[in-house]
Nucleic acid binder design. Structure first.
Lengths: 135, 135
DNA sequence: CTTTGTGCAAATTCTTTGCACCAAA
DNA sequence: TTTGGTGCAAAGAATTTGCACAAAG
């Protein structure tokens, strides 16, 4: 998987079996998985994998800007391989998380000259199409 | 403190000594305190207070729309008595959380006709005035 | 060799639960 | 009384830490 190696190197992350597996999983599964979900999904193919490594790795990815750390849910932290600017919506009924494109960089709607902003997180909560009817 | 009683009743919350104390604290301390901070701050004046009650009460406030639940930090949930639309900024160095006014309701910048949105959370991360120089 | 990554187990921290007691209507 | 609120102790869940071992250069 040369392409993932390259992606990691671009973010100053030294590739390893575990790191590549985790990044590949994130890239292939845009479901904003939790640490546990990543761990359980990869365990069959990487039997020696430990949860500590998944924690370490995802944290590293977030620090290096190779992935996004999503905290739309109080309970679990989630991760997203899509590092482009976009918002997230969580359905309070089915708990599914949706990506929402931003119309523009209009996200800079605040008057915040005093701050040096490095990250923007826009979270919506409510009910999705399927759930809002039978609410 | 008749005014706090009234505020709680408006949000369908029956006042009690603990609830009034917690709401008063939130109204007086716009520091987005954690459960622990609220608990420790009130313990001297309400010695029988339990952390369970603080959890229960703040959760109730959030459900009833009497306060806002902020999850800008992965670690702790925080609460805000300001229920008007505004964004939050957290300094990654000093960890202080700032309120940021929104220029407009321009926050509806997404194309999300498929969703019934009930809450919007806009979080910024970066470095505040004091910290960005000595970063 | 030396540095860095991995994985186990234990520890920590935050939050919830179950249940008994207390208070107000 | 009866209902709902409070508080304690225990349980639960998510995450971090310390340390030994393995891998890569």
């Amino acid at each position: 998987m040369k392409v993932t190696d390259q992606y990691l190197l671009e973010h100053h992350i030294k590739p390893s079996v575990q790191r590549v597996a985790i990044m590949d999983y994130l890239k292939a599964n845009r479901t904003h998985p939790t640490v546990d979900e990543v761990y359980n999904a990869l365990l069959p193919s990487v039997p020696t994998l430990s949860k500590t490594t998944v924690y370490n790795t995802l944290k590293l990815f977030a620090e290096q800007g190779a992935a996004l750390c999503i905290s739309i849910e109080e309970k679990n932290v989630r991760f997203d391989a899509d590092i482009e600017d976009h918002a997230h919506f969580i359905c309070l009924k089915c708990n599914k998380i949706y990506d929402i494109p931003m119309k523009s960089k209009a996200i800079q709607i605040v008057t915040a000259d005093d701050f040096s902003i490095t990250q923007t997180h826009l979270y919506y909560k409510g009910y999705c199409q399927e759930c809002k009817d039978k609410k």
